[in-house]
Design a binder for these strands. Structure first.
Lengths: 113, 113
DNA sequence: CTGTATCCAGTTGGATACTG
DNA sequence: CAGTATCCAACTGGATACAG
C-alpha cells in the first residue's frame, strides 16, 4: 500500500503480467477454470468453440509454465488430464474484475474533450 | 455490484478491454500520461527509448480511437501536438493497480500442487 | 515538429495429419 | 483421450525514407 511506482517500473511491472495473459485464448481458458473448476482437455475444447488443439495445448503449457494453471495427469489408458487454477491463478480475480468495471465505465465517462 | 458473469461473457468482456491495451507500447504510453500529464509527441519519443515513430504514432491513434487518449493540435508552424488521458483513460488506474498487486503475489502464493 | 509510406523479418495462429 | 508435427497465411513491429 502507498507504494509508489515510477512510470517506467510500473509500466514494465504491468506489462510483465500482461504478457502472461497475452494470446487470443488465455483469458477464456482462465474463466472456464474459475472457482476451482476442474476441466479436462476435451472439456475445454468443447467449451471454447473455435480453438484449435494446437492453441489449446500451447496456451495451457504456457499458463502452466507461468504457474497460473496446474495440470494433473492420470496415468491410465486412454489418458485423462485435468486442469485447474493454482492459488496464484485464482488471485487474478480482483484484477479481472477491475478491468470489467473499467469496461463498464466506457459509456459513462467522457472520452473526448 | 454483485453482478454475475458467465465465463463466456466475462471472458469476452475482459478480452475486449485487453485488446484495447494490447501492443508492446500502449501501457508504457499510458503510464507516461498518468495524473493528467500532458506530453508532446517528441516528449513521448524521448521518454520511451526504443520506440519507433511508426509505433508511437500508431499506438496513439488507436488509443485515441478507443477514447483512452485525447489529442490536441495547436495549428501553428511547426506543429505542436499534446496528448493526455481522457476521463475514461484515467479510470483504468485501479485495474492496473490490481494487476500490479497480482504480480507482487507471485512469490507469495503457491503455484504448484 | 509531427507525422505517413514502404519494405522486410519475425512471430502468431489456423488447418491438417499423425502418435502413444 | 490428449496431445505433437508440419506447413502456411496473416499480422506485428523495426528501419528507413519522405512530407506538410
Amino acid at each position: 500500500m502507498g507504494k509508489v511506482y515510477t512510470p517506467a517500473t510500473a509500466a514494465t511491472g504491468v506489462e510483465e503480467v500482461f504478457k502472461l495473459l497475452e494470446g487470443r485464448w488465455k483469458l477464456v481458458i482462465l474463466f472456464h477454470l474459475f472457482d476451482g473448476k476442474l476441466q479436462r482437455f476435451s472439456d475445454l475444447e468443447k467449451l471454447i468453440p473455435g480453438i484449435s488443439q494446437k492453441m489449446l495445448a500451447q496456451q495451457l503449457r504456457q499458463l502452466e509454465a507461468d504457474g497460473i494453471v496446474a495440470r494433473k495427469l492420470y496415468p491410465q489408458v486412454p489418458p485423462k488430464v485435468e486442469y485447474r487454477l493454482t492459488d496464484w491463478g485464482q488471485a487474478i480475480c480482483p484484477a479481472l474484475d477491475a478491468l470489467l468495471k473499467w469496461a463498464e465505465q466506457r459509456d459513462e465517462l467522457p472520452k473526448a474533450d
